[in-house]
Each structure stands twice: as C-alpha cells, then as structure tokens.
Nucleic acid binder design. Sequence first.
DNA 1: GAGTGGTCTAGACCACTAG
DNA 2: TAGTGGTCTAGACCACTCC
Lengths: 239, 239
Amino acid sequence: MAKYIKIAEEIRERIVTGVYPVDKALPDQINLAKEFQTSRVTVKKSLELLAVEGLVYSKQGSGTYVRKNALQMSKLDNQLDEYVGVAHQLADRSSIASQILKFDVRFPNELECEKLLIDKTQPVYDIVRLRFVDDEPFLIEHTVMPVHVIPGISEEILTKSIYEYIKGELGLKFGGANRHIRADKPNELDRMYLECEIADPVLEIDQVVYLTNGVPFEYSQSRHRYDKGDVLVVNIKSV
Amino acid sequence: MAKYIKIAEEIRERIVTGVYPVDKALPDQINLAKEFQTSRVTVKKSLELLAVEGLVYSKQGSGTYVRKNALQMSKLDNQLDEYVGVAHQLADRSSIASQILKFDVRFPNELECEKLLIDKTQPVYDIVRLRFVDDEPFLIEHTVMPVHVIPGISEEILTKSIYEYIKGELGLKFGGANRHIRADKPNELDRMYLECEIADPVLEIDQVVYLTNGVPFEYSQSRHRYDKGDVLVVNIKSV
DNA sequence: GAGTGGTCTAGACCACTAG
DNA sequence: TAGTGGTCTAGACCACTCC
C-alpha cells in the first residue's frame, strides 16, 4: 500500500474521530511531513485525496481545513465506491432477483451504433430483464451489449451479475458511465411488469457504461417504479 | 498558468485533433518530459488531469492510452464545468426568466436544520420561484437558505442569479452538492404553475449545495416538467 | 530483461493570506 | 513580513507488462 494512501487513512480517521475538529485547520504540510517521516509532496498527495472525498479543502497562503460537512461526506463515500447503476444501491439491505424477459442476438440500429461506437455489422445482445427487490417488481431494464466486447453471455450469467462476470471471468474493469435521468409516463411494459397504475410515473435512466479503456460495453435503459428508491448524485468541485 | 495545465491543454488538443489517435498509446512520460522541457513528475500530473476528464488512462508497466470514447468525453466537459443545478444547462440556448411566488424569512424545521447544519434559532430564507424557459413554465423551486451564511438576499437578486450574487458580492465559492433525483406524481402546485395534467409525472431534485469550506448554503427541492430536459450524470472511475 | 508507469525524496522558488 | 500551500526539479527505486 502506498505511503500517501496510508497517511490519508490516518488523517481521515483523525477527522471522523474529532482529533482534527470540523472547521479548523490541520497541522501544516511541513509538520505533517515530519510526523509521518516523509516529504511534503507525499503529504500533499494525501491531502489531495481527502479533498476529492470532500473532507478537507486547502487555501493557498492560509492552510488546510476540515470541511464543515466532512462527517456527512465520510458516510457517503462507501456507497459511492459500490455505485453501479441503481440496483446496487439496495444490494446490502435486500434480496434482489432477476427475471429474463428477452435474450436475443441481433444487429444494432443506428442509435446503438453511435452510443456503443460500433458499426452495423457487429452483433449485439438484446436483453430485457425484470428486477425484484424482496419479491416486488422494482425496475425493468433493456440492455444492449456488443457481443465482441463481452463474449460468452448466457442466461445463467444474466440472472446473476453481468458486472461480476466482466470483472471475474473476462478480467475487464468498469471505468465509468454517462447517465441521463428523466421522468416519464408508464408505457405498456411498465404497467404489465412493474404493476404501475396509469397515473404512476416512472424514473428512466439511460446509460452508456464504459470499460477503463473507454470501450462502451453497455447501453441500457432502465425504468423504475417511482416509489422504490431514487438516484443519489454527489458532486465535489476540485477547483 | 501552471506548466502542467498548459501541457495538459496541448495534449488534449492533440487528442481531439487526432494527432494522438484513439485507442493508441501516447509517447511515454520520459519523452513527453523531454519534448516539453520539464520533469517526468510534471508530465504525470498533466496526464492525471486528462485521466480525470476521461480522455486517457494509464496502465502501469505498459503505457498511457487514449480512451476509445475520448472524443465524446471532450465534448461533455464544457457542459460539466457550468453545471449548477439543472437550470443552467439550458442557459446558453434559451431565455430564462424567474417569477417569485414566495419570499419570506422564518425559523427552520428539524429536517432543514439537519441538512443545513444549523440550529433552530438561526433564521432561513424561504423562497419559492417559478422558472420559465422561452416563456414556458419549466420548473418550480423551493429553496431554503440560512440568512447568516448568505446575508442580503433581495427580490431583485432572486430574479437574477443567486449564484452570481454569492460569487460576485459575497466572494464565496460553490464547492459541491448532493442531489437526490426521483419521479413523482404532480401535486397541486405543479398542476397550477407547471400546467401539468394529472397524469403528467414530475422530476424532483432534492439538493444540498455547499460552499468550498463545506458550509451548506442551500437546501432546495425543484420539480420539473417531465417533458422539458433531463439530468446528465457523468461518472469516471479513477481507480 | 527492457520498457513503462507509480511512488518518493530533498530542496527550491513562487503565490497567496493574514496580521 | 512571516507562514502556508502550489509548483517544479533531477534523480532514485519499485511494480508491473510484455516480449
């Protein structure tokens, strides 16, 4: 484990336990460097980590301070690391099940080519899944994935986790996503499978998910019951 | 302007113009350092900037590569810098107007105290605004702000931009936000002011906005017409 | 084993804040 | 003006990838 990460952990611990109180300055970088038997550059790197997490902020010429909302931020971080779509947010506290409504291979349409950065000749999986939380329908998800990027998908994998398969079997890493979030009226499928009334809105999330090398591997549209969960977005400016 | 930022700009330019092609490795850090007459550490810092933007990724022992979706990412970035709530997303291409429905000062309730990290004795502004894009109602926003954090709010400021006032007059900086996004059925106000039909869903965004020092200065709930705009969330993993 | 990125150092100078 | 963070250097060693 890198030294600057260990130091960041120690400082984070001191913040959440109140050794470094909220709204007050930390010891300056030179003294922290002395204490941790390291160079100032390394200490600075640790503080940058904590700044990205929203725990501290630095003011040139003045000092590095604990942010007033530091304690709240430290709670959020665990959730963030695990965040993949919305389904995962609930993984801890509930049982999740999947029902496969459709699993096909076909050629992509124009929009899918554009989103997935592929051409018309490259086949894609066409998957529709219904997800349950504690036996109640929660979301319906339409996923399109390029076969050549994620080969070997089977129904068995779909009932478990695609992300686990990509990480474990294929050795690829999730690298980010762009999501569009909007509200919509329920359509036929929503009413049938999510058991929506005609006046029940749905929350729609359109996303393109990328591997670390920027190759898109999933373009999906998921539609959620409006009364089951929401989307949390945390945003910290670094400048 | 710091050298590492200039170098990042030059490399970004080379990526978007195709000098460094997508999916290929950049020159290694030592050679980039030579070219830019600098040290390897400085080059690395430039590459880290570009990695955060989603343009490149580095693989220890192998090289630094242009991400396949780099060109799409470079388009998104401009939008992101300007992102403050949802209203701003539209600022460029349309005329925005505000109508003040309510502007009061009162004591906060328990939830507001918790969100804004204040106690019951500290008064808050209680503001309700209706926003129009090109003369059509677009969102209705209920904002609560602590008076002692943002003093001197007037109706005139509200019709313009609170953020401009905070930055310009008070010299404070916006430092981040936590948002919860969900879909909901329209309530009385939505139907009256947003001109929603009873079956029209609304997109609700609950947010706490912070200054750079972590002091919450706004707790707001905005409700949007489902057919006018959505929320874009970009997420790049750095690990 | 050669090449590449990741980390770390010790010291320097600059830019900014605050009294 | 003193103190603090921001940047930069030149060199070193380590960890990892890939041939």
